[in-house]
């Protein structure tokens, strides 16, 4: 059963592509400008991969995401763990976090442009903002859960507060932190594309909007696929880190 799956799936994809290429044009007569045919997309893809501008856009977008993500991780993990272990810290920040959290990062795009102008700074700010909340909330939940479940056991075995923190709370919170990072990076990647569509003159989000205004639908679709692939790449990198750093966790949460 199982070995037959992928050949059949491949066949299904080929059939769908063939229908798209040879049947859809007879039904949808608005022309390939709107429904790019697989062959057009393939052509668009090749010309895109050959252009230096495309690669510059990829580097720009990924760089911005990683920069914003790094800022969000640095602040989010420290603050989240502090929230998880210290009720006073939690009480100090929870209202503020709860007030800011419901606002999607996209809603900050216009004000970020007013504050920081069009370009790198506002992009990094927006990514950091989008990635921050999943990271801080997961880190807090991880530290809180660990401190509650294993803290007393460590206490009865005579561990001091520093030892408890370093050997129990931190490793216990690690899988949660990494989970939050994965979610945060995913949100960040979504935010950067959106931010570059409105508030940048470079990056993949800008490139895809530009392709659209030149009515190059084949490039638009190729860019979408690239955006998807980079998203997968970023996520699977963190997944690998997660498996390395917390191998015992993967079997519990997907």
């Amino acid at each position: 059963m199982a070995p037959m799956r992928w050949p059949r799936r491949t066949l299904l994809v080929l059939i769908l592509l063939a229908v798209w290429q040879w049947v859809v044009p007879h039904i949808v007569t608005t022309g390939p400008a709107f429904f790019p045919l697989p062959a057009d997309v393939a052509d668009g893809f090749t010309s895109l991969l050959g252009s230096a501008r495309f690669w510059r856009s990829v580097v720009t977008s990924v760089g911005r995401v990683l920069a914003g993500f790094t800022v969000a991780t640095a602040i989010g993990v420290v603050l989240g763990i502090a929230i998880g272990v210290a009720p006073r810290v939690e009480a100090f920040v929870d209202l503020t976090i709860e007030m800011l959290r419901p606002l999607p990062a996209m809603a900050w795009i216009p004000i970020a442009i007013l504050w920081f102008g069009v370009g790198d700074v506002s992009s990094v700010f927006l990514v950091a903002l989008g990635a921050f909340f999943p990271i801080v909330l997961n880190a807090a939940a991880g530290a809180r859960t660990t401190a509650r479940d294993y803290g007393k056991a460590a206490l009865t075995s005579g561990a001091g507060p520093w030892l408890r923190f370093r050997r129990v709370t931190l490793p216990g919170a690690l899988p949660w932190v990494l989970l939050g990072c994965r979610v945060g990076l995913g949100v960040g990647w979504m935010v950067i594309v959106s931010a570059e569509m409105v508030g940048a003159q470079s990056g993949l989000g800008f490139l895809i909007m530009e392709a659209r205004s030149f009515a190059r639908i084949d490039w638009v679709v190729a860019c979408m696929i690239v955006i998807g692939l980079i998203g997968i790449g970023l996520d699977s990198t963190l997944e690998r880190v997660q498996r390395r750093a917390a191998p015992w966790w993967g079997r519990v949460a997907a």
């Binding site: 979504m190 638009v220 860019c223 998807g228």
Partner: peptide, 13 residues
Amino acid sequence: PISPVAWIPLALA
């Protein structure tokens, strides 16, 4: 993996 925002240009077209 193709995020909703990446569909915006195609949806506009």
